[in-house]
Amino acid sequence: MRVAVLGATGTVGRTFVRLLSGHPWFELSKVVASEKSAGKAYGEVVEDSPEEFEELEIVSLSDFIKDPDVDLVFNALPASLSLEIEERLAEKIPVFTNARVHRYDDDVPILVPEVNGEHLELIEVQRARRNWEGFIVTTPNCSTAILTVSLAPLREFGIKRINVATMQAISGAGFSGLSALAIQDNVIPLIDGEEWKIENESRKILGKLRGERIEPASFSISAIATRVPVLHGHTEAVFLELERGDVDDIKEAFDSFDPLRKLDLPSYEKPLVYTDVPQPRLHRNRGKGLTVTVGRVEKGENGFKYVVTGHNLVRGAAGGSILNAELAYRLGYLK
């Protein structure tokens, strides 16, 4: 399948391009960026481009919209540019997007393949309601993606309440998101809109598909999001109350969680690995960045606690979106 990456020169866009190098199913045929970059070779703008894409000519967004000529789109554009573009493209072409603008639509899944692959059934609801040949599938906020991978195995114990504090890498803010002076020797205990996303997206992802809509999970969740001076890898301290289970049960659930293992997806990696002390510098690239590392599972006075870390640009963004497309392809939603 011929694919395009929108926003291909940005932080997430570059990650998409890198991960698509040598992909057996998806052939990257168009890299799309601003008018400023249009007409230049991708390797001229992105110095660490994979060799196979160095000579690929960058297409402007306006020209691409006129004539997409691809089978599939990965969107790494900012939310401010994405709403109308995604809907226009989805009339004919499947769109897998990292933008937030359609995450909260009733007929659009926020997909984490190991957690809620059944939500892909909403694709047919979209097509029927909107008279589209294509569709839109979104990835969650990067912290939500990492958190929900760790929560999914615990559903069997009855999740009642979650409190989470995130320690998020600076690459999550993009190239120009933070000045060096702001983050150096500092922790910034506010990321605008992030806590609302974590709380609401987690409940949708872990909710159940009922007919043509998702019924959000019933647990309560409260988040505090902070930015820390780490380049890549979000770390989260999770405190939760369960209806049943003990520490050994939780560790066993983490260890055995592997729902995609038999699907033979090109990007497949084991989604969860237990390590006593998870750390972004040591563990963010585990499983080529798709594996989430969890540890420090302990029982406290009011429930359980653990620490989880994962690569925000891979599991939390581009890699998760590619895995979404692979699952959709395997299940027959892509032709």
Rank of each mutant, 00 (worst) to 15 (best):
G7D: 06
F16P: 08
L19D: 00
H23S: 09
S29V: 13
S29G: 11
V31N: 06
V32L: 00
E35K: 14
V46E: 06
E47G: 10
E47F: 13
D48N: 05
L56Q: 03
I58S: 13
K66P: 00
A76V: 07
A76K: 09
L77T: 15
E84V: 14
E86S: 13
L89M: 01
R100P: 01
Y104Q: 03
L111P: 03
P113R: 13
E118K: 15
L120E: 13
I123F: 10
E124V: 06
V125P: 01
W132V: 08
E133Q: 04
I136H: 07
V137M: 02
T139E: 08
N141L: 15
C142H: 14
C142T: 15
I146Q: 01
L147K: 05
S150W: 06
P153D: 09
L154Y: 14
L154E: 13
E156G: 02
E156Y: 03
I159L: 14
R161M: 09
Q168G: 02
Q168K: 07
S171F: 02
A182D: 15
I183S: 02
I188P: 13
P189E: 08
P189F: 09
K197F: 07
I198F: 12
S202Q: 00
G207H: 14
R210P: 06
G211N: 10
P216C: 06
A223V: 04
V228M: 05
F239H: 13
V247E: 15
V247D: 07
I250D: 05
K251S: 10
P259L: 00
P259T: 04
P259E: 11
L265W: 11
Y268R: 15
D276P: 03
Q279M: 14
P280Q: 10
N285I: 12
G287V: 12
V294S: 03
G303L: 09
R315D: 01
G316T: 08
A318C: 07
E326Y: 08
Y329A: 06
R330P: 00
G332D: 07
L334Q: 11
